[in-house]
């Protein structure tokens, strides 16, 4: 198995764990972003932390986006004071539509050849979505998504892993 296959498998497994923690049946693009941010020793990790976006900061931004989106229709998650449900150790989240799009965009970004894929392409695949939870969360966190995309492209041009 190639290094990029190992990386993608690790991100998908960690993404599934993030989805499970969320109680989500699907791995979505924001779960991939959390997984990418948690995986040290790669260009995407350096790019994200360099922009002040560690896993914790991204998790906080996603929580804010959730609350903000609910507030738009007058709902507050704290209106339902039920205890947190027990996690489901048997749940195996499958890739959702947004994760599929992120992977497609990553492949497109590297010219459609899987052998040319590098971790930063995966980050690019997540970041280049202009619609959805990830761009909304990053905007609410005050992150400059366009600048982060530009730095990711520079990193790829520089041959970083």
């Amino acid at each position: 198995m190639s290094a990029i296959d190992h990386y993608i498998n690790t991100i998908m497994e960690q993404g599934a764990a993030e989805a499970g923690e969320d109680g989500s049946a699907a791995i979505e693009a924001h779960h991939l972003l959390l997984a990418i941010a948690a995986h040290e020793g790669t260009a995407p990790h350096r790019l994200l932390t360099g922009a002040g976006l560690g896993r914790r900061e991204i998790r906080d931004a996603l929580d804010r986006e959730f609350e903000h989106s609910l507030a738009a229709v007058g709902v507050s998650p704290s209106s339902f004071p039920l205890p947190a449900p027990a996690p489901d150790p048997g749940r195996r989240p499958k890739p959702g539509a947004s994760a599929g799009l992120a992977l497609e965009r990553a492949l497109t970004a590297c010219g459609g050849k899987k052998r040319d894929l590098r971790p930063a392409h995966l980050l690019l695949g997540v970041l280049t979505a202009g619609i959805g939870t990830v761009p909304r969360a990053l905007a609410l966190a005050g992150a400059d998504r366009a600048a982060l995309i530009a730095r990711t492209q520079e990193s790829l041009a520089g041959g970083d892993w």
């Binding site: 969320d22 109680g23 989500s24 049946a25 986006e65 959730f66 989106s69 609910l70 738009a72 229709v73 709902v75 998650p77 339902f80 939870t133 909304r136």
Partner: peptide, 11 residues
Amino acid sequence: AAVVALRRLAE
């Protein structure tokens, strides 16, 4: 986005 968040909250 509210629809997505409401679905998640409902789950």
